[in-house]
Design a protein around this nucleic acid. Structure first.
Lengths: 162, 162
DNA sequence: TTTGAAAACGATAATGATTATCGATTAGTG
DNA sequence: CACTAATCGATAATCATTATCGTTTTCAAA
């Protein structure tokens, strides 16, 4: 779906719940559409939105993100670094929240594939737990950092580690 | 392993890293050993420790929990409710962090079983990501709340939802 | 056992993210 | 166009966590 279309869809969503469509909300959604691959914090969004709508307040950004989260347009996620991050929901892969967090460079990448189909079935059956959503996060060392580490160990023996 | 033994083990851990064994640390570990099944927040621990050592300060509890986390004696976990929780690591099931969070009653239960063996293999192979740890959390409706909901819908039609 | 330095402590101030408040402004129905 | 609830910006308040600092304690070496 094109950006245009998705914007229209989101506007419709707002409207159908009798929320008002304000320039601030529109600008916020634009920013989210233009930065889909990042995991923006509220602060990040605030700074980006200020370019489009300099008069916007931080509180409004928080309010808008919270609203979009309730409408299930964005997902509010948490990598344990002290800030919430907000991701536009992709169509289809409705609630696939699989992340690889690198403990060396801090990079976060995303796995689209549904890894948990079997696991979910098992949990629903064995614990009689009705799953609505899930979060799966792996902490480890990303490809790039492994490569970098390998290169450096050629030059000299590994020394300090933080 | 008995509580006594585990306490001794933890003391040894501290000592081997030349950390000092203070009454405050001892009392904190005691509390953790006595409340293994709960997911205590720092505040929770603080209140419980005050019974044993009333003069302890909240900052010391935070410091101690942070230290125990670094020593890999406890795991600092995050359910997205705004507070960190601290769980004693069980022997064996070293880093199995699977949780079921009920979106109705807020209850958190734990799955001991390793659900992710296959998934981990796949991620390590396909993304060349060296996994050190993981978190898997399901959000949904627990057994008890499903039962309760079913009973209530006998009495009258479901009405409001928050 | 005494002693001295580093580690740890308690109290509390500071921080940083998020939320609540409030008077002013605006979207959108009629 | 007018009206009213929704929304806004500014900013104070909150809440968990961390930093600071002067005092106290642990523990190893004398």
């Amino acid at each position: 779906m094109a950006v245009e279309e998705r914007m229209t869809f989101i506007k419709k969503q707002l409207h159908s719940q009798s929320y008002k469509l304000t320039p601030q909300r529109e600008a916020t959604v634009e920013v989210l559409l233009e930065n889909e691959e990042d995991h923006l914090s509220a602060e990040d969004v605030y700074l980006l939105v200020k370019d489009k709508a300099p008069e916007i307040g931080l509180a409004t950004v928080y309010r808008t993100l919270e609203l979009l989260n309730e409408l299930e347009i964005v997902d509010k996620i948490n990598f344990g670094d002290g800030v919430s991050r907000y991701d536009l929901r992709k169509e289809g892969a409705d609630h696939s929240h699989h992340h690889l967090v690198c403990i060396q460079c801090g990079d976060v990448s995303e796995i689209e594939e549904d890894l948990l189909a079997e696991v979910e079935t098992k949990v629903e059956r064995e614990w009689n737990f009705k799953i609505k959503d899930h979060r799966l996060t792996f902490h480890g060392v990303c490809n790039a950092c492994q490569t970098k580490a390998a290169e450096q160990s050629h030059q000299k023996e590994t020394v300090g580690q933080e």
